[in-house]
Design a protein around this nucleic acid. Structure first.
Lengths: 217, 217
DNA sequence: CGCGCCGCTGAGCAAGCGCTTAGGGTCCGG
DNA sequence: CCGGACCCTAAGCGCTTGCTCAGCGGCGCG
């Protein structure tokens, strides 16, 4: 399966793993609503309404409104972790892996900016034990990226005096895409990914000639 | 007045311009609460309680809870704009101005991370006309930074193929400091500012030798 | 001392919240 | 034809929310 087909499949139904159908419609509706107004400003009546059901129907599939957020956060962060893992586990130099990591990670945050906004900015609304569980996924993502940067620093490809600080900055940069990105903006998710990969490679002082050609059309 | 004295004065009373005393205590309490739990999850009873008053006292000084957020946003974004303006208006090369801009802007977002979190991440809770007014301040800040980067690109100091995109990334990086920074973390606001200035200068391909010496103490 | 004013409180209202419960369709195996 | 499993809805419960209002205490002024 080619990269394009793979991406199309991922995109087609982001919540394909959620069954039955009504439960899936509810997650979709909740993501939309949470991203637009925030978790606390969203009512269960609003979510149910968007999914085309009565308010009570929500509670057949989810115990509480918080559980909905928890499911969304879990699925989303697992996806983010898999994206980072694919880039980190690939073969190639630290430069190549970092470029791929930033490009795909930033692109995902743009493409799925509603989901990403929810899972990155509404975390504090989770209950304590759900929060720590999700925070664990985040830490694993963080460690994967840090390892790439550490590898590049060790091999001399990168000039990174402060590896944890640089990791933090790169992650912060990618995650924040979810905050400002809109589908009607001037940039496509692909362009954001490419731009960010270029910027980050320069940020870590990677050798320059490998830069891609930028926006192409 | 030296830089240290100036910073100490700014810090001493962030809301010094707000009178009378009770109104100032309310803004302080509101910023604290909004930053911790978010605007919608914060109750007027909580704000009043933190300020040591009854819930009704809030409405003597502010018409609505939203007006409190509006005042906070206004003061905060004006401060952010002044910081960026000071760096942009200073004399020196684009490199020097960009370093100064990123250093002070990121440092402010770390030092006043509670305020910054509120003004940067709770904007959507503002009413429509208050929102557009605050968005205007943000656009002015954005333009100041873009001009610095444009100057550097024009003079050949920077290699920035995509000036608006680079501006967006730099701003995003600095703003997002407010999300992850905590006072008990491993980095001081000063260190964050210095680190970020170094990272950004490399990101725009500025000549390297000007890098500062990093953490100093 | 007396009076008005300003800042504040105690009590509470209407509305909206998350969530529950009793019951009604619709389908399938027998 | 029946009976129950499965989804769903209408109605509404208890509670909290943003906000209001009548009234009170202490201060400055005459």
């Amino acid at each position: 399966m080619g990269a394009a087909a793979e991406r199309a499949e991922e995109e087609h139904e982001e919540w394909a793993g959620v069954t039955p159908d009504a439960a899936r419609r509810l997650v979709g509706a909740a993501v939309e609503a949470f991203a637009e107004r925030g978790y606390h400003a969203t009512t269960t009546r609003d979510i149910a309404g968007r999914a085309g059901m009565s308010p009570a129907a929500l509670y057949i599939h989810y115990k509480t409104k918080e559980e909905l957020l928890y499911r969304i956060s879990g699925i989303g962060h697992e996806k983010a972790l898999r994206i980072m893992g694919a880039a980190a586990g690939a073969e190639g130099s630290a430069t190549e892996r970092l470029r791929d990591a930033v490009r795909t990670f930033a692109r995902w945050h743009a493409e799925h900016h509603t989901t990403a906004r929810v899972i990155q900015y509404e975390l504090q609304a989770l209950g304590p034990e759900h929060y720590t569980e999700i925070a664990g996924l985040r830490r694993r993502t963080d460690r994967l990226l840090r390892q790439i940067i550490q590898d590049g620093a060790d091999s001399g490809e990168f000039r990174a005096d402060d590896v944890p600080g640089t990791t933090l900055a790169v992650l912060s940069l990618c995650v924040d895409v979810a905050r400002w990105f809109t589908a009607d903006g001037p940039r496509t998710p692909d362009e954001v990914g490419t731009l960010y990969a270029d910027l980050v490679l320069r940020m870590v002082g990677a050798p320059d000639p490998g830069r891609s050609t930028g926006a192409s059309h």
